[in-house]
């Protein structure tokens, strides 16, 4: 067979078609929307008015209905339109790592060994990936431990933003980068704790103690009570979470970022 071939054009494929790191304009809109909805869902005790049709205890349940819808929309946008198969496989595997690490923390005061992974994931693969990683890690972990409940959508949104924040940190390398990551770890660990406690405050302590949410009191009074309640009950947990996150970032970030960025190169994502 000595057929003369037409000179064929060269196929250049420097990267696997779609980058996981890019966050489309639409996904950005969705993320902003999720942030708004999430904030309302977490801060509901602030605007709760006595005499409304819903009991304060049922409020988080209502949000547990709405948040999954919002999450479904944003996660579908992030994974369906912005991610190729490599991104999905990476997302699944990193979520598995988180889901395996998470039970190690339960029972040990406030140990939360997954935040560092979410932050580094967001850092290496971009904010959209970070959000999806946070949400899916929490979901997979809940399925593995059979811990699905009204708290799950809250955890998914909050963990999503932890990962997202890791992706939005300013460009830096070396020690500055490490300091930035650790700082975000510290901040996000505390904010995560405060938001979760705030949303489930009426559940945590019941309606009739002096630390309880009082629907009739004004915002300032309720916030004051909440701060005291939080200091008395969750400070240790929040501090523990923040310290483990910072410690793990300082210890592992250099090595892990190297591993993750190598993956980003090999998968031909645009690394940050």
């Amino acid at each position: 067979m000595t057929r003369v071939l037409d000179p064929l054009p060269r196929t250049t494929l420097d990267s696997g078609a779609v980058s996981a790191a890019a966050v489309s304009m639409r996904a950005r809109v969705m993320l902003v929307l999720t942030a708004v909805v999430g904030l309302i869902a977490f801060a509901w005790p602030l605007f709760f008015t006595p005499g409304s049709a819903v009991d304060p205890l049922q409020a988080p349940l209502l949000f547990a209905l709405v948040l999954p819808l919002v999450l479904a929309v944003v996660v579908s946008e992030l994974t369906g339109n912005g991610m190729d198969v490599k991104g999905l496989a990476l997302l699944g595997v990193l979520s598995a790592v988180g889901a395996v690490l998470r039970p190690i923390g339960t029972g040990t005061a406030g140990m939360e060994p997954i935040f560092f992974l979410l932050i580094l994931g967001g850092r290496a693969f971009g904010p959209g990936f970070g959000f999806a990683q946070g949400a899916i890690t929490m979901f997979a972990s809940a399925l593995l431990t059979a811990g699905v409940g009204p708290w799950l959508p809250y955890q998914m949104v909050a963990a999503g933003f932890v990962g997202l924040g890791g992706g939005f940190l300013p460009r830096a390398r070396g020690r500055v980068e490490l300091a930035l990551l650790a700082a975000w770890g510290l901040v996000s660990a505390f904010v995560y704790g405060w938001l979760m406690d705030f949303a489930f405050w009426p559940f945590g302590i019941g309606p009739s103690t002096q630390f309880s949410f009082d629907p009739h009191a004004d915002i300032a009074a309720n916030l004051h009570t909440f701060v005291l309640y939080n200091l008395a009950t969750s400070m240790g947990w929040n501090l523990g979470r923040a310290l483990t996150t910072v410690a793990l970032i300082v210890l592992l970030a250099p090595g892990l970022l190297h591993v993750l960025r190598r993956a980003a190169r090999r998968a031909a994502f645009a690394p940050r």
């Binding site: 369906g80 496989a89 699944g92 979520s95 899916i136 399925l143």
Partner: peptide, 12 residues
């Protein structure tokens, strides 16, 4: 949500 469910299935 098919893609997201694939990621979860992989994780599990």
């Amino acid at each position: 949500l098919y893609e997201a469910s694939v990621a979860v299935v992989i994780a599990l």
